[in-house]
Design a protein around this nucleic acid. Sequence first.
DNA 1: TCGTTGAATGCACACGTGTGCATTACCATT
DNA 2: AATGGTAATGCACACGTGTGCATTCAACGA
Lengths: 354, 354
Amino acid sequence: MSEAKHNRANADGAEPGRDMQHIVTSADVAREAGVSRSTVSRCLSGDRRISDATRKRVQETANRLGYHVNKIARSMNTRKSDLIGLVTSGLSDPFRVEFLDKLILAIQQSGYRPLVIDVSDPAQMGTSMMHLLQYQVAGVVVTSGSPPPEVGVHFLKRNVPVVLVNRAGRLEGADVINCDNVRGGEMAADLLLETGKTRFGFLNVKGGTFSGNVRGETFVSRLAPRLANGDISFTPLVCDSADYDGGFNAALKFLATPETAPNAIFCAKDHIALGLLDAARFELGLRIPEDIAVVGFDDIAAARQGAYQLTTVCQSATKLAEMTVDRLRQRIRGDALTDQRLILPVEMTRRRTA
Amino acid sequence: MSEAKHNRANADGAEPGRDMQHIVTSADVAREAGVSRSTVSRCLSGDRRISDATRKRVQETANRLGYHVNKIARSMNTRKSDLIGLVTSGLSDPFRVEFLDKLILAIQQSGYRPLVIDVSDPAQMGTSMMHLLQYQVAGVVVTSGSPPPEVGVHFLKRNVPVVLVNRAGRLEGADVINCDNVRGGEMAADLLLETGKTRFGFLNVKGGTFSGNVRGETFVSRLAPRLANGDISFTPLVCDSADYDGGFNAALKFLATPETAPNAIFCAKDHIALGLLDAARFELGLRIPEDIAVVGFDDIAAARQGAYQLTTVCQSATKLAEMTVDRLRQRIRGDALTDQRLILPVEMTRRRTA
DNA sequence: TCGTTGAATGCACACGTGTGCATTACCATT
DNA sequence: AATGGTAATGCACACGTGTGCATTCAACGA
């Protein structure tokens, strides 16, 4: 008997429970309750074969000793943890934060725990996702970036489901959930056409994102007939970053001469729209929506605030989170066999900017 | 040999690496490289005793087979994972989100992984924190709520460090990190006194929070001499929720009659201040800062935006996160012996609302 | 009374890793 | 040549749990 590595006192069996450093295991409960360790395990997992008498006794002893399952050890045996990996990049994008908020809640209520992985560098996406496998995660949700195709097979091989949310989905074995970017782009076009404005613009981040590109493309498609007529004009607008500052600086750059600048602008996302609004109003002295009509996308909390009252396409973070977790659970349970592509409906929320 | 539980093909040893479901373990690498499993383990952990030749050979085989350490198994053995528990409640508070953003980054850069626990119900705080112990976490950061004293001993017993950030700290064995609420309250008072306004107010959420109470108390203390003179007046203001809506509704309630209402208001946090500002400007038609001067606390991103330009006490989320992780690492390493209480300096950031 | 059945429980293995100690091999010193 | 020392590696145990199979025991029908 080595007993050297972990210095437990009372190795000879005299009152082992009194050891300060000792952590209660199922073996302790078993000894104390006068049953085998298997019985303890079965009692706590609700196995029907255990008699009510012993079940009760075991549960009482477990409570008395303050026993808690060691989930690491359990995962070691079952080869599956109750962790769900969340791949994201920072918490600066307001809509993603709202989504993560609901997602974390939904994950917890399903009995899982979120393990967050932050990938700021897209090139590290692959290795970061592989890191998740080291923790035997039960599933993964990707909310940022696009995982390289080769990681898909590793998750497939281990039956670890992957859900891509609002991403370009080329990943084999993964489900894809998107809000209805197509319908959103169309609704934005329809509403801006109603305003009677004639110089249209779509503001997106340089290089574009998957969601943003789809929104922009369908926006333009919807304008196409009127563009062909020559009734209206369209200008693509590009900003350096997909956030408030990006929108702010873009406004300074593109709206400096209001007579010719676009006056009906669809922004790829609300956060950009907020910056645009502030620069237009407070730096350039433009009136909203008289001088410029603005439509955003997402319906983040700030869009509802008095200072902005942004007209925007609303996608529900709550529903998106529920869909995500539902799908994850289906796959974990083994129900879902084929990859699926789900679409969350969107709505137009009309406020004061268009 | 049972071989029934986990259905591995090729149990007889013929080309075991070709099994589809098989996951590469250190034993595979050992066999392939012609060494013992111990040697593999030592190579990958950088043990000096291994000769350069075998180290190189082992690392090459590991890469070739695509071996990744099973961290669950490692944790099982070492009784410590590289997970750090983050106790929070939702992602609706902007400053907490900014802090978590930086914190997650800092945690990852130190080689750890954040495991998020969301406690919406304060009564569940205790059990939720106990859940963290099931994952053998290396440490815990509490950013919301106040853990009940009895959980402290469990973490102490297992040498799992706990850091409370911007919380009331009564927890034995835990470090406490706060921003300088005292100095912040004083600075807010000084600045608002400078404006020449005479009717002072402090807006906090009903019931108060630890940080908010300290800010309010020192604010009033600083006003005390002038209050005693009768130069100025002070009214405590209370809102229902510690967010935008709370501030908004409070403004409607308390600022309806501008002649007698407070005109120099210190808000316990920026998020509340934003709501107050919008209601005051857009609902009540008040001018800022001519009619009402407002000072916030935190310096969240929105405070910098053109629509608000909030004058506020700035605490750096980045520095707060760095301090937190530094302290965690010290304790994990075993350097830090006694509980510590750290204070992050704050600064006044003057913008347009006071 | 004996064999059969079914419920309740224990035994023993497996999960994949880190590490103390023993062992081997090789070289320098006496 | 014998001895001592050191560098490199293997053996074997432990971590705490879930679960297939064997075992026990009581009840019951023939």
